[in-house]
Amino acid sequence: MTTTPATPAVPVRRLDRLLFGDNQFFGVNHMSEEKARSQQLRFQRIDSVMSVLDAARDEGINTFMCTTHDRVAEICDIVRANPTAYPDMVFHPCMPYAHKYANAVTEDGFLGAIRRFMPDSGVVGAALKGTRSLAAKDVEGIATLLIDAELKMFEGLDTPVVWMQNVIVDLLLGLGFLDAFRIFADHVRSRHGAEPGFITMNLPQLLDALETVGVENPLVCSNINKLGFRMSGGVEGYLDALERRPFRAVAMSVFASGAIPAEEAIEWACGLPNLESIVFGASSRSNIAHTARLVEQYWS
């Protein structure tokens, strides 16, 4: 495959050490379905979500790494409507929200799903009428339009990084469709002035793929914890990548969904080379404050 250099990088902004995730708001817990259901019920009210985000901000955690779930649009509306209350809030959109598309295809079929999510434009209309764009499977054209549609909810907000979700990243890795990473990176940079980020469950393989298509010094978020929980290839491969490979690392699942005590997990993670940020989720003020204190203590 010919290496194609990506669009020149946008100005790099150093990430905060702690990023706040959104799994707890939408009933995602990798160890306990019961806890996931409980959290989903608790956060049905948007004011319950905002109270936790406000608690994170009280601890100096201003970056919200979130999916493009429909309810995130409500959060965006609140932040836009209250600029003095959220003057420095940063969003890191993660896309696509796979369940949203799966449900749409089930309800409306493939073409109906495209109509639902794509902007209403002449290009889209032509594609959906079966003209050359769709017949030729113009993946790049459709993909970039979908990116634009997903980012619409964040209009007017600070979005310095846009992430490709692991469910898509790892699917593309498996299919060998590596040019999709370059398409995503180029479009996020050129159209939205943001840095592209990639979330994966296979860090070493993704770094090889991004190097192949010319995405240099990428932002990559992956599970990184001392137990090897959901780390394809094992802990040693990840540690080797952190030591030797040129990329900006963000760690998720450092607690291995609660299997590692918080202090032990944070102390280990903060000692890793080349780690720029940790993303975590929590549903209580006390847990947020505890994590923030541990990171301040161990991240020298």
Rank of each mutant, 00 (worst) to 15 (best):
T2H: 14
T7E: 05
P8S: 04
R13Y: 05
R13N: 09
R13E: 15
L19V: 13
N23K: 00
Q24D: 02
H30V: 03
S32H: 13
A36N: 08
Q39C: 09
Q40L: 15
R42C: 10
F43K: 05
I46G: 00
D47M: 05
S48D: 09
V49W: 04
I61S: 01
T63C: 10
F64N: 11
T67H: 10
H69W: 03
C76D: 06
R80F: 06
A81L: 09
N82T: 07
Y86I: 10
P87T: 13
M89N: 07
H92N: 08
P93R: 03
C94R: 12
C94F: 03
C94I: 15
F110M: 01
A113D: 07
R115M: 02
F117T: 00
P119I: 02
S121C: 00
G122P: 04
G122L: 07
V124R: 02
A126G: 13
R132W: 00
A135E: 08
K137H: 11
K137Y: 11
I142D: 02
I142N: 06
L145F: 09
A149E: 06
E150Y: 13
L151E: 12
P160Y: 04
Q165P: 00
V167P: 01
V169Y: 01
L171N: 09
L172Y: 10
G174N: 12
L175T: 03
L178W: 02
D186K: 00
R191H: 09
R191P: 08
H192E: 06
I199C: 11
P204L: 04
L206N: 07
E211H: 15
E211G: 15
N217I: 05
P218C: 00
L219Q: 07
V220C: 07
F229S: 14
G233N: 04
V235R: 12
L239M: 07
L239C: 04
L239G: 01
A241N: 14
A241Q: 15
R248F: 02
A249P: 08
A251H: 05
A251F: 06
A251C: 04
V254Q: 10
F255P: 03
E263P: 09
I266S: 11
E267F: 02
A269G: 04
P273S: 03
S284M: 09
V295F: 12
Q297M: 06
W299M: 03
